[in-house]
Design a binder for these strands. Structure first.
Lengths: 211, 211
DNA sequence: GTATGTTTCAAACATACGTTTGAATCAATT
DNA sequence: AATTGATTCAAACGTATGTTTGAAACATAC
């Protein structure tokens, strides 16, 4: 059986992903984790610190792989969007190998971190893992040298939004898909649809060319 | 000067957009609106009802226009993605004509409605405005007859995700953009970047063609 | 000008939250 | 077996939340 600290994080990551940070009370977390209410403050200090710990645990698991993949790509003389996206998404998928639904949970958490006004989280993440975003930006620019800075900036963030949202709404989308399309869907299959969607969006003509 | 009910809604819509629903207390709303705390319960019944009223006020303002635009497109024999997206986004932009920052506020609200687990809101919106989503789905399929059902399904939801996320993270994106690019950004400009991104993504080669 | 229905207001209510406390329990060391 | 430090626990603390109350103020009609 896991120790108290792990029991808390395991319960919290699911509840945070499902309901959001502010909507999830310490009392619910500790009752699901079957530990005493005071344990969160004892082991983590505060609820804020618990939120950061839960998200950081995920980043620690996959950020190394992403960094290696990105660094490899930076050494190449030319890069394709597909390669960049695979460098990012494959390590995320691999989270599932240690624990089912890990990838989905992580993405939902990330989506909430973006959306909920948990200022401390944005600061924490950008200070600790901002270098990955920089690498990502440089690679996307390298893969699309014709786009100007503005266009790269916006498309990059639209793309991140699509990914986070797709993964965050992962379960809901799977449910709808299986009802609508009468076919079972797994995460890998969803990503097979997602990658061409994103590469296409990144390579579409610019607004200037259209007008 | 606006009456109490309007004063409350005007204050609430800004605060909800900025901070989210659960993070915005009735005391803050009523103090900004300069009305008595009890006024919300008196005029709206509950906080839930206020949230619905704020969002519905926006939908009432632009859903008619969208419906007309969509119906027109359904009568045409062929439809382009750009037309569909303009049919949806132009009425949103036009919200700004009656009130500055209306479009931005509405988008942020919609993003929060999607993301925050306000179950009652999703039920309310899908019951009242689900027909617009159905129209949207049919049009997208019409604009992309080559895609099979699966591909249309997934791309449509990826697209909605991108839009909603762009809307929800609107302010954050603007802030980052202005810091990163040293240029001021308005909502119209963001949408100018968004539309080609989305049309491109919808028209990209399918996963089958790539493999 | 009195009566009636609507709106406002200060105050209180009940509940939920994150956190703290101090004693009890456990584990390891001497 | 006694001592020490880490952990668990029930209980309480202080504060913030949405809501309700009943009287006061206001507006409108007779």
């Amino acid at each position: 059986m896991a120790n108290t600290k792990e029991k808390i994080m395991n319960a919290a990551e699911v509840l945070f992903a499902e309901q959001g940070f502010s909507e999830t009370s310490m009392r619910l977390i500790t009752s699901v984790a079957q530990v005493n209410l005071a344990a969160v403050n004892y082991h983590f200090g505060s609820k804020k610190d618990l939120i950061q710990a839960v998200i950081d645990r995920y980043f620690i698991r996959f950020s190394g792989k992403v960094h290696i993949a990105f660094t490899d790509l930076e050494d190449n003389e030319s890069v394709s969007m597909t390669e960049i996206l695979e460098g990012l998404l494959i390590p995320v998928i691999e989270l599932d190998e240690t624990n089912t639904d890990s990838a989905a949970n992580f993405m939902r958490l990330l989506g909430r971190a973006y959306t909920e006004s948990q200022g401390h989280l944005k600061v924490f993440l950008s200070e600790k893992y901002g270098y990955l975003l920089s690498q990502f930006t440089r690679l996307v620019h390298k893969a699309n040298p014709d786009l100007d800075n503005n266009e790269v900036f916006w498309r990059l963030h639209f793309m991140l939004g699509t990914m986070v949202f797709a993964m965050a709404g992962h379960q809901a989308l799977k449910d709808i898909a299986e009802a609508d399309l009468n076919e079972t869907v797994d995460t890998q299959r969803m990503i097979d649809y997602l990658i061409p969607f994103l590469t296409g969006s990144m390579q579409s003509p610019t607004s200037l060319e259209i007008n």
